[in-house]
Design a protein around this nucleic acid. Structure first.
Lengths: 112, 112
DNA sequence: GTGAGCTATATCGTACGGCAATATAGCTGC
DNA sequence: GCAGCTATATTGCCGTACGATATAGCTCAC
């Protein structure tokens, strides 16, 4: 599992990226993250749902309720135009930061 | 400037990396981070000093007071054996996480 | 000699966010 | 009926970045 801080830094970009592919509901997003990361991005409901509410409050995503034919109803989220722009900014920020770290660690990277 | 979450995720590895080169005092570490990042890692005293205390409390760094011939005395920090091990783990964690993100973003990376 | 400005460390208060725990509810299979 | 999965929501605790504030030594200008 990843450290709390790293999780915090990556939650928003990962969720926005998943939604940039196609709309999805909360529980589905958790499973997708789990799949896409070989089981290492294991979020809980107490992490995900408040995050979705914050993202919606900031206008980065929008939601609609839809019934399910095999269980409780689902709240589907889609990426807004603003959300897509923020995702691009997040990517750039991550890559910028990563290049600083790579520059710092340089050839010392003995990590196999 | 980088987001609060990204700063939180990177503070410990960056400080430990700086100290892995040679011992340094708090104020110096702030300046080194600023230099090493082309001015983008701009930490404040309210961020750095509590962090140094936490790292020392966890046994990752150790400190000694030394007088300065040109100003107030300085508290010099050095990396402990435990700190060096944690730094290696942090690096691995960062690289692991980065590879997940790169896999997620794949060829979509239009970020110039 | 005093006051501005840099060096150097420390702490308090606020705001935010991850996450465990808890609650609710629909569906399936035993 | 009850265990277990699906699906969403909220509360409470803890950790932490960071602005604000305090303290103090040094240097240089006036």
């Amino acid at each position: 599992m990843f450290s709390k801080n790293l999780v915090a830094a990556s939650l928003q970009p990962v969720v926005l990226t998943i939604l940039s592919r196609k709309e999805a509901y909360g529980y589905e997003i958790m499973q997708r993250a789990l799949d896409l990361s070989d089981g290492r991005l294991k979020w809980t409901a107490g992490t995900l749902y408040p995050l979705m509410h914050r993202l919606e409050g900031r206008g980065l995503i929008a939601s609609v309720w839809r019934p399910s034919d095999s269980g409780p109803r689902r709240k589907y989220y889609r990426l807004t135009t603003k959300g897509a722009a923020v995702l691009e900014a997040d990517k750039r920020e991550w890559l910028d930061f990563h290049s600083i770290l790579m520059n710092l660690w340089g050839s010392e990277l003995s990590v196999a």
